[in-house]
Computed example of a mutant assay.
Amino acid sequence: MTSETARRDAAESLALALVGAGMQRMASRTLAAFLFADKESLTAGDLADELGVSAGSVSGAIKMVAQMGLIERSFVAGSRREHFRMRDNAWTTLYSRQHSILDDVLSAVERGVDAVGSGPAYDRLTYMRDFYTFLLNEVPALVERFEQQRRAGRRP
């Protein structure tokens, strides 16, 4: 297997795993293309060529991945095309956005806890609330430890 074939197979394998985790197929393939790209930035045309699809079919995927906070527009001197690149610290940015979603979920769960009496619904809702509250309290310290390890040149 050539290194280019191995790279493409690995990218498609990652995209499939992302689909399995609930991400839309074209957004998954687009994110994988960014992750495996040797270029600093990509255009919709670059992505279309890499993925073997039309430029129009990747535009929605670019928008979705950008809304997730993983990619951003990038200026390329002399180019008239719109370029995108992976955001620095994309994964901690993604976590920050998910954190705000979990805050909304926790508010709704808290309303549910207040609305039900003791019993199975109360037990399920308080378990969910307590679990996500615990996670939200712990993750910032984990992210900081991760960043410290990265700065020190160690792999987690």
Rank of each mutant, 00 (worst) to 15 (best):
R7A: 12
M86E: 12
S57H: 00
F75R: 08
V65S: 00
G56K: 03
K39F: 07
T30V: 14
M86D: 13
G45H: 05
A37K: 08
G78S: 00
Q67A: 02
A77L: 01
S74P: 02
A6R: 15
L94V: 07
V53F: 04
V105L: 14
T5V: 13
M64G: 00
S41I: 02
D123L: 15
G22N: 10
S96H: 02
A10T: 14
G112H: 08
F84Y: 13
S118M: 06
V53T: 10
D88K: 14
L47S: 06
R97E: 05
L31F: 14
L35F: 07
L142M: 06
S54H: 13
V139W: 10
P140S: 07
M86K: 15
A27D: 02
L70S: 03
L135P: 04
L47A: 04
S79M: 06
P120C: 04
R8K: 14
L136Q: 13
S107W: 10
F146M: 01
E82C: 13
L35R: 06
G45P: 01
G69W: 10
K63H: 12
Y122F: 12
M86F: 08
S57A: 03
R25K: 15
Q148L: 11
L94T: 00
A152S: 15
G45D: 06
G60W: 08
A32R: 04
H99T: 04
R81Y: 08
W91V: 04
L31M: 15
Y95P: 03
A10C: 11
R7D: 10
D104V: 15
Y122P: 00
